[in-house]
Write a protein that binds this DNA or RNA. Structure first.
Length: 225
DNA sequence: AAGCCGGGGGC
DNA sequence: GCCCCAGGCTT
């Protein structure tokens, strides 16, 4: 309907997806927040804790944090100072602590239920465009891209540069990412791309020689690192 | 649109 | 020492 990524064919998208998924079967990461058994509370909390923070850092933080805070309600009796002290090891602790207490209050008012559309989700504290998509995909099984700096880097290197500075205001990138993750189990391709970005297509030192995408990667042809 | 947050990990 | 990390909020 919009044609910003029309120059990229469905076949190219399919091949990219297939290679990433194959790579993921052998090399994908396993994290607590990817387990089916966890609560929606934990799924949302994971996305918030992960903001601008390495996944391995949150993996270590996971057990002690959720032992202390098993639910939204459990966060209501903690002072801001206490919460800041708890969040401190993962960084950005002023904003995250304040936001979490605020979100816990909002969730109490909402009786633990989340909105089911993007605009309403983004009105909640600490829930922005990325997180809203993550919630829709991981909890409600929708097909939204987890389009952060990492997925953006992979898509840009492989398919070509985005047009605008802001990820969430770039129609080409939005449309391309949406097409790429448009499969039945959308969260798997999303996780696969994030894992691929973290382990192979890294920001500073991408491991191009062993990369399964290098033959058709636009960046590899130009700068084979 | 730009600035800011932050401890920890990798190099 | 420097750069980067599953972004969002404030100005």
């Amino acid at each position: 309907m919009l044609n910003h990524s029309k120059h990229i064919s469905a076949t190219e998208i399919y091949q990219f997806r297939r290679k990433i998924l194959n790579w993921y079967k052998a090399h994908g990461r396993n994290f607590p927040w990817r387990k089916k058994s966890i609560s929606n509370y934990q799924k949302v909390m994971a996305e918030i804790l992960l903001q601008r923070t390495q996944a391995d850092t949150i993996a270590k933080f996971w057990q002690p944090f959720f032992t202390k805070f098993p639910s939204w309600k459990s966060m209501l009796n903690v002072s801001l100072k206490e919460m800041e002290k708890i969040i401190k090891p993962i960084g950005l602790y002023h904003a995250k602590a304040k936001g979490l207490l605020s979100l816990a209050k909002a969730m109490k008012q909402r009786r633990g239920r989340f909105p089911k559309n993007k605009k309403a989700l983004e009105k909640l504290p600490l829930i922005g465009p990325y997180n809203a998509n993550a919630i829709l995909t991981v909890i409600y099984n929708e097909r939204q891209p987890l389009l952060d700096g990492n997925m953006t880097r992979v898509l840009e290197r492989y398919f070509g540069k985005k047009r605008e500075k802001e990820i969430h205001r770039d129609p080409y990138l939005q449309e391309l990412a949406t097409r790429v993750v448009n499969i039945e189990n959308s969260k798997i391709i999303n996780w696969a791309i994030l894992d691929f970005a973290a382990k192979v297509c890294q920001a500073r030192t991408p491991k191009c020689e062993g990369c399964v995408l290098k033959r058709k990667c636009a960046s590899y042809k130009v700068t084979p690192y």
